[in-house]
Design a protein around this nucleic acid. Structure first.
Lengths: 261, 261
DNA sequence: CGGCGGTTAAGTGTCGACATTAAGCCTTCG
DNA sequence: CGAAGGCTTAATGTCGACACTTAACCGCCG
């Protein structure tokens, strides 16, 4: 890693209580989309990868936790070969570190890496948003409405989990509409890495409101076919999200330089 | 894939004669950087993955070719397990397709996907170039000069291979300077996919000249600390490269819609 | 003579075992 | 009393084997 401070999510804050089954199911679905992609057949390794991945995303496994392959093979009643493959799948997605000859661990994201991820996501999503505003059919843009309404509903109920997942679906629909599978894959992969922190970022006071407002304005930009504004909104939203994340992640490391790169 | 026309590179044109050892070594080095990353220990699987990957990039294995794991295990005097891992590594980099229960094959890029890749690369590289122009130290920017001179030398000699690799190194140095490992990884991965076509694109008449000119101007923009210009140059260069690639890849599929989507 | 169904060969997914290596523990020495 | 070094344990990397699936080949029937 050799990056700056490493982030601890669950262990310190003790945020995730046990296992919110509904949220876990959502996480599972998202990971299935990313990991299994078009693996229609529910193969053994992808099933295992999805489940372990969901556990990581849901914070049931803390960063740095060992992922003992023999223990996992016992748990899934299988041999170690599929487990190894599953862990390497998750390594590709950045959820697991598999150092040679050492035990695989849940990947610990450094704050610097989170910054990088947000910048990359912003750059690619600007492209997506501009494409949607410019080229998408009216029907496609209209199809975003229900997702926005789900976000609104969750926001009004103050339901953090529901808001996060509605938000994820909103973005997912965007990438679908833009019809750029390459960028979609990259964004999905980056999303998976940061999913662990989404809840944290959005739980900051006022953050959910701000996020929801941003998406309302984005929707309007789409409907006005204003691709420049759409891209600018995406950029602004990502900058704000990152700032709020930094605020609640590294309140102590004030010694670190403030420059955003 | 379900994309549009699939591209055949080597088989039809018969471009790569046998195995240019120097170029092959360069390919191997690049793939090692991408695949092995920080795997200091030359592990068995990464060695195999690098070699097979280099063969694909160098066009020694045509898209669609079978990658029989038992045959490969014979060739590398090993069991099938490391071969499988190596192939899945290459699948992650987009060089190999591993359909479930079917033989792995050398991935065949569709023209639509190439378009997507160029757009994604352009978006991310704009970010990198802007960062370099804005934040890099004078020494870092100066370190790009020798690489540019290598490009010039290759250009003057009309040495296509040398130019391609000098170009790759120039870009690599850029990503290093920008110090964003996340984006660097993504760009490297995208690079690997398109490396097979670089030669094709640059062999178009006048293309090498144009590319070289672009890089000269980029260098000036860096030295003038003009981040907007640097980003614009990157965008322009990628658009031109893609256009030239499309021109020589799909001369027949005139029925395909021209929109760059 | 061509299309279709069964048969055979080849290849993949998974398994359990073995050699090798890293981490933990205990002993011993400074 | 603390630290360094060897020993023990446990986990990984690799292997060869087996069952199942796919695909190719062949004969059969229309």
């Amino acid at each position: 890693m050799s990056h700056g401070a490493v982030i601890e999510t669950t262990t310190r804050a003790g945020r995730m209580p046990a296992r919110d089954e509904r949220s876990f199911g959502q996480a599972l679905a998202v990971i299935q989309r990313v990991v299994a992609e078009r693996n229609d057949r529910p193969s053994l390794v992808s099933r295992i990868a999805c489940e372990i991945g969901a556990e990581i995303v849901e914070g049931l496994r803390a960063p740095g936790d060992d992922l003992n392959s023999v223990e996992l093979s016992r748990r899934y009643r299988t041999s170690r070969t599929p487990i190894r493959e599953a862990l390497m799948l998750l390594e590709k997605e950045g959820l697991v570190d598999v150092p040679p000859r050492r035990r695989p661990r849940v990947a610990a994201l450094a704050i610097d890496e989170v910054r990088e991820i947000y910048r990359a996501r912003a750059a690619l999503f600007e492209l997506i948003a501009a494409d949607v505003a410019r080229d998408a059919s009216d029907a496609d843009i209209a199809s975003l409405r229900p997702l926005l309404e789900r976000m609104e509903l969750a926001y009004r109920h103050g339901d953090l989990n529901a808001y996060v997942w509605a938000n994820v679906e909103f973005y997912d629909r965007n990438t679908q509409i833009a019809n750029n599978r390459t960028i979609k894959r990259i964004l999905d992969s980056l999303l998976l890495k940061t999913l662990r922190f989404r809840r944290l970022s959005l739980s900051q006071p006022g953050r959910m409101q701000k996020s929801y407002d941003d998406h309302i304005r984005l929707m309007r930009a789409y409907e006005d076919r204003d691709s420049n504004l759409a891209a600018a909104l995406i950029r602004s939203n990502h900058i704000n999200a990152l700032a709020s994340l930094e605020a609640c992640l590294a309140p102590k490391t004030s010694s670190a330089r403030q420059t955003s790169r």
